[in-house]
Each structure stands twice: as C-alpha cells, then as structure tokens.
C-alpha cells in the first residue's frame, strides 16, 4: 500500500503549500485519478495546508507539517497534520462544530451559500472568511473530518470520492 500513499514533511512556511500541491498533483496523475478530481484535490490540498501554516503552533516539539495523500480503490484521502496550542480546547470545539455543521448537509452547496452570506455580513476588518472548509466540502466534493492526538497534533482529513463513485 505504501506506493499508494505520498507522505511529505514540510516546513510551516507559505511556500510549502505550493510544493505539496504540485507533488500531490503529480502523484495523483501517476495513479490515473481523473482530471476533475485532481483539480478538486489540488484546491483541497491548498486550503488544508493554508490553515495548517496559518493556525499551526510550531513552538513546541513538532516543527513541521505532515501531508499524506492516499489513493484508495474509489476514493482519495488527504490528511494534513499540524500541531495546535496545547490546551486550546475552545478552538478545537469550534472546529468540531464547524465541521459537523458542514457535514449536516447532503448538499454542501447550502452550507456554502450560508457562509457567503455570513462573510458579507461580517464587519470589515475580519480577516477570516471561514470559507475554506466549506469550499473543501462544496467545490472539493470532500468529506471533512479531524482528530487531535495525544501530542496535540491536529490531523484534518478530506475524503474525496473519485468521479463515478458514490
């Protein structure tokens, strides 16, 4: 199975996002993943990596971001692992709430519209749009999930059913 998984360990810098995206694209192409899925997964890679670089806590033992791209029989799973500030339970609870909210819709388009409306309602100056995760579900056609391990590393994953699979 190892040849069906691409694991990358990168520095938490903005430039790493594009590197991971390009390497994932090449890997997915090698495994004959259809082009629309590759495009969707590239976007998902970028959004997950951006969040990891932006919100990761790299002052502890873990100094890097780990990315895994696994090709399964009818799906692709992207995982991005980045450390979070130990004890920041509130942030994880909000992430949990957000992901469950997105997954509450059979059609994530509804969640996307709700989020667009909220972004337009936010006061100028609020930098976070909150659109990234919703976009992963809607445009990236992926099911989001996460857990935090005992080393305070957030593992956020996106399961993408390859074109044709349910």
């Amino acid at each position: 199975m190892t040849n069906r998984t691409l694991s990358l360990d990168v520095d938490p810098v903005w430039e790493s996002i594009d590197r991971v995206r390009r390497e994932n694209e090449v890997f997915l192409r090698t495994h004959q993943i259809p082009q629309p899925s590759i495009e969707a997964l590239s976007m998902v890679t970028c959004e997950l990596m951006e969040n990891a670089v932006k919100y990761g806590f790299f002052e502890g033992d873990v100094k890097t971001i780990q990315s895994r791209c696994s090709v399964e029989s009818d799906s692709v799973v992207l995982e991005v692992r980045s450390p979070v500030k130990p004890g920041d339970d509130a942030a994880m609870a909000r992430l949990d709430h957000m992901i469950q909210w997105i997954r509450g819709y059979q059609d994530p388009f509804q969640a996307y519209l709700m989020r667009l409306r909220e972004v337009s309602s936010q006061a100028m100056g609020t930098s976070e749009s909150g659109l990234g995760l919703v976009r992963i579900a809607y445009e990236g056609q992926s099911v989001l999930d996460f857990f935090v391990d005992s080393g305070s590393v957030l593992n956020i994953s996106a399961l993408h059913a390859v074109e044709g699979a349910r």
Partner: peptide
C-alpha cells in the same frame, strides 16, 4: 487559474 478562499472575501465585501 486558481484562487484561495481568502481571495473571495474582498470580492464579497465589494458586492455587499
């Protein structure tokens, strides 16, 4: 060719 989700925010704000 591509935009990240943060790019949408200033566009939405403009439309609003």
């Amino acid at each position: 060719d591509y935009m990240n989700s943060s790019t949408i925010t200033p566009v939405i704000r403009l439309l609003h």
